[in-house]
Amino acid sequence: MRNPWLWALLVAGLTACNAEQSTLHVFGAEARAVRQMALVLTIGAVLIVAIMVALYVRAVRAPEGRLSHDGGMRMVLWLGAIGPTLILTALLIYALPAMRPRATAPGDLTIRVEGEQFWWRVAYDPASDLSPLSSANEVRIPVGRTVIFELTARDVIHSFWIPGLAGKMDMIPGRTNRLVVQAEKAGRYRGVCAEFCGLSHALMAFDVVAMDGADFDAWMARSRAASTGVTASRGARLFDAHGCGGCHAIRGTPHDADIGPDLSRFGERPTLGAGILPPTPANVAAFIRFPQDAKPGARMPAYPQISVADARAIADYLKGLK
């Protein structure tokens, strides 16, 4: 009965190639180890199901008395108790090493990520002497180096999950959790919030960019400088006039508020609204006027009083920040 479905599943699974956000398309060492483990566990589970089905069919078909009382008790003892005990003990021993976190050294890159309804506040090297580099809704990591994520939340519980990189870790107000990872392959990926956090929990994702070490270092150096594109444009004036700087920071301008997402180098971001929309100027303008249309429950107030043209000018200004 199930066979046609299994085939359909297999086909669907193979055709639906999702390389961005999947525990099966890995780009980190931790996720690779777990995928390996998942394979072993699945094979074991399939074998056990097959054995159980075979035993059950024999049990139902066996004529009365084929199995004596003592034989039955031996079966319960060996197959029901001793067998599972041995298998589970082996499994525990197999899995224990993977529970140990990756070792860290003093110079390792630390990235602090804070979850908020419904976006991500990101800070690179938060303890460094250089000016801290903050960002939002995008995490960049160097390939081949150990990275320590420090995870917490300001409002409610969120969970930080980059399926291709490593398992998830909760972000809990009042606590700071550590997740230590190492990326193995450069590329663009996606992370999501995995703990239900309110109205737009489904719309809380982020972009992950794994870069070669040298590229990453260059990017860090470039990013610590002021955003390019900070000019006295109409969009910039409107940004000031409507008080956008009351919540948002842009490096190289007087705006350094930390209520909403940091918009420095906004033009570099691959998505808008924490991983949910393509960052076209039209989308940005619409988001400025009615954020709740794209993202129910978003904390940013709506600005219906900003005209479409003005919103578009602000969007163009933001898109120019690189």
Binding site: M37, A38, A95, M99, W161, G167, K168, A194, F196
Partner: peptide, 11 residues
């Protein structure tokens, strides 16, 4: 198995 759960949890 905790490491597997880190991936599977809440999915």
């Amino acid at each position: 198995v905790a490491p597997f759960d880190w991936q599977a949890h809440d999915s």
